[in-house]
Design a protein around this nucleic acid. Structure first.
Lengths: 157, 157
DNA sequence: TTTTTTGCAAATACTTTGCATAACG
DNA sequence: CGTTATGCAAAGTATTTGCAAAAAA
């Protein structure tokens, strides 16, 4: 819980250590899910992770992926992000912002540096502990915008 | 698409007018879903709306509620918010922020005035049109925090 | 060896869809 | 009256859970 892991490998280590510290067993499956997640640059959903891990652990089940994600999220090692379609998981706990495509559900990271760190007054009414603050920008991603243009032929109202 | 409706009734009118302007028929069911939504101060999910409207239109089906929500969201009259559990719908299109409770899924509005309007640079890489910008603050709401305390007895690590 | 975790299968929750009927304009 | 929307039922997708077998410590 001290240093922010920088490299993929450090992050993987940090995730595994945190689970072991809680007395959880480091199974083959868990380790591979963690490895996949630690190296993820986007925000995979459970099924993407399942398909990726299955390449190395062909017998893994979706259930185990779900359970591992729940385990990691409960410890705040990763963040579960409600997203259109399926929940996505963010392994990066440093301050950053999100762009969410309303067409495809993809989430793109935006550096906090580019947008500044928002200031949140403490003691907001009806609010207890705050665990994350981030800008959520919604819209259509470049890729989906390109598809739209093709489909509609650029004559929108 | 001009003035921001202030009162519940104005908003209801604006929603209905926008649909009529698109040649959609103003059915009893649609009108009641719109009415419920226009007066919502929280961010109801489909089932909450269904149960509320059913009091006045006992024969309405969940499907119709879902379809009406999709119709309104497609026109940006309301915003569909991916949330843990079920999607929630925000009838307020003026600038404001959200606090999301990670325990119960509840979403609380925070006035833009209290937190300032974030500035977003245009032309972000990989991003097309932007439809909404808002701060998303996650944590535990006051109510859930109170329950936690009861359950754990305040001795957490 | 004891306890935890896995994989399977079944269950649950949310949301969408095809189709015949009913309602709007 | 012609077209659109509704309600029903069924299907689809995402996620959770009980349980016996397998694996970790």
């Amino acid at each position: 819980m001290d240093a922010i892991p920088e490299s993929t490998h450090e992050r993987e280590q940090a995730f595994a250590d945190a689970l072991r510290a809680d007395g959880l067993r480091m199974t083959h499956q868990r380790l591979e899910v963690i490895r996949e997640l630690a190296s993820a640059t986007h925000h995979p959903d459970a099924d993407e992770l399942f398909r990726a891990v299955r390449e190395r652990v062909p017998t893994i089940s979706r259930d185990t992926v779900y359970r591992t994600l729940t385990t990691l999220a409960a410890r705040r090692l990763i963040e579960r992000i409600a997203a259109p379609g399926a929940a996505r998981f963010d392994p990066d706990s440093s301050m950053h912002h999100h762009f969410v495509c309303t067409e495809c559900g993809r989430i793109l990271d935006l550096d906090a540096g580019d947008l500044g760190e928002p200031e949140v007054p403490s003691g907001l009414p009806g609010i207890g502990e705050i665990t994350s603050v981030r800008l959520e920008i919604k819209g259509v991603c470049g890729e989906c915008a390109a598809h739209e243009k093709v489909r509609t032929g650029d004559g929108g109202s």
